[in-house]
Amino acid sequence: NKASVVANQLIPINTALTLIMMKAEVVTPMGIPAEEIPKLVGMQVNRAVPLGTTLMPDMVKNYE
């Protein structure tokens, strides 16, 4: 099973992601793959992301 990106803390709306906000975890359903973490740094979330939430592509602005 591949790990996904999971919020390590509450991430407020429009916050630019940093490494300490994210962790890799095997979850179902899968979200953004953990190997994308370096690419996510500096990208903004378009909603508040609660602690423990799996990051999905539609939660990150301009994620492709």
Rank of each mutant, 00 (worst) to 15 (best):
M21I: 08
I20Q: 14
N8C: 15
N14L: 10
N62M: 10
I37P: 00
M22R: 00
N1F: 11
A48W: 10
N46E: 06
M30L: 11
V5I: 14
T28H: 08
L51C: 13
L55P: 01
L10F: 10
P33T: 09
N14V: 12
L10K: 09
V6Q: 13
N62Q: 08
D58Q: 08
I37Q: 13
Q44D: 13
V49L: 12
L17P: 01
P33L: 10
A48F: 05
T18D: 07
K23F: 07
L51W: 11
A48Y: 06
L40V: 06
S4D: 00
V45F: 02
T54M: 05
P12C: 15
E25S: 09
L10H: 14
L10N: 04
N8T: 15
I37W: 02
T15K: 04
A3T: 09
P57R: 14
V26G: 03
N14W: 06
N1L: 14
M22G: 01
L19T: 08
T15E: 10
E64A: 13
V5W: 01
T53H: 11
G42P: 01
T28D: 15
A7P: 01
K2T: 15
M22A: 02
V27D: 11
K39I: 07
L40A: 01
V5E: 00
G42H: 07
P50H: 05
I11Y: 01
K39L: 05
R47C: 10
T28L: 03
A24M: 10
K2A: 15
N8D: 11
L40C: 05
N14R: 07
M59K: 02
N62Y: 09
A24R: 03
M56N: 08
K39G: 06
Q44C: 11
S4N: 02
A34V: 10
V26P: 07
P50Y: 11
V41P: 08
T18V: 07
L55R: 01
N1M: 13
R47S: 11
G31H: 02
G31W: 02
I11G: 00
P57M: 14
T53Q: 10
L51R: 08
K23A: 08
L51N: 10
M21K: 03
A3P: 12
A7F: 01
K2M: 15
K39R: 11
T15C: 09
V49T: 10
Y63N: 03
N46G: 12
D58S: 10
M21Y: 11
A16F: 05
I32T: 02
D58A: 11
A34G: 15
E35K: 03
M22K: 00
I11M: 04
L40H: 01
D58M: 08
V45C: 07
V6T: 10
L51A: 08
E25F: 05
P33W: 08
K2S: 15
R47L: 09
G52I: 01
L10G: 12
I11T: 02
A48T: 11
M59T: 12
E36G: 12
A7K: 01
D58F: 08
V49Y: 02
L51T: 14
A48C: 14
M21A: 06
V49P: 01
I13C: 14
P29C: 14
V49A: 03
N8L: 13
V49N: 01
I32F: 02
V26K: 02
T18Q: 07
I37G: 07
L55E: 00
T28Y: 04
V41S: 08
P29K: 11
I11W: 01
K23M: 13
V45Y: 00
V60C: 06
V26L: 11
P29Y: 07
R47F: 13
A16S: 12
L10Q: 11
P50W: 10
P12H: 09
K61Q: 11
T18W: 03
V60P: 01
L40M: 06
M21R: 04
N8W: 08
I11E: 00
T18P: 01
I13W: 05
P50E: 14
I13K: 10
I37V: 04
A16I: 03
M30N: 13
V60D: 01
M43Y: 03
L17H: 00
A7G: 08
P29H: 14
M56E: 08
V27K: 06
I37T: 04
A3S: 14
Y63C: 14
L19Y: 05
E64L: 09
L19W: 05
A7V: 08
M59V: 07
Y63K: 03
I20H: 12
T15D: 07
V45I: 03
A24N: 08
T54E: 02
A48L: 12
V6C: 09
N8R: 14
E36H: 03
D58N: 10
T28N: 13
M56K: 09
T15M: 07
P50Q: 14
I11S: 01
V5D: 00
V5G: 05
M30G: 05
Y63G: 03
M30R: 02
N62T: 06
A34I: 07
P33Q: 05
M21P: 01
Y63T: 04
M59F: 14
D58H: 07
V5P: 02
T18N: 11
V41T: 08
E64F: 03
T15Y: 04
T54P: 05
M56F: 09
V60N: 00
M56Y: 06
K39Y: 08
N62I: 03
P38S: 09
M30W: 03
T18H: 11
A7D: 00
P38F: 08
P29M: 06
A16N: 07
M43C: 08
M30Q: 10
L51M: 12
P33Y: 06
P12N: 09
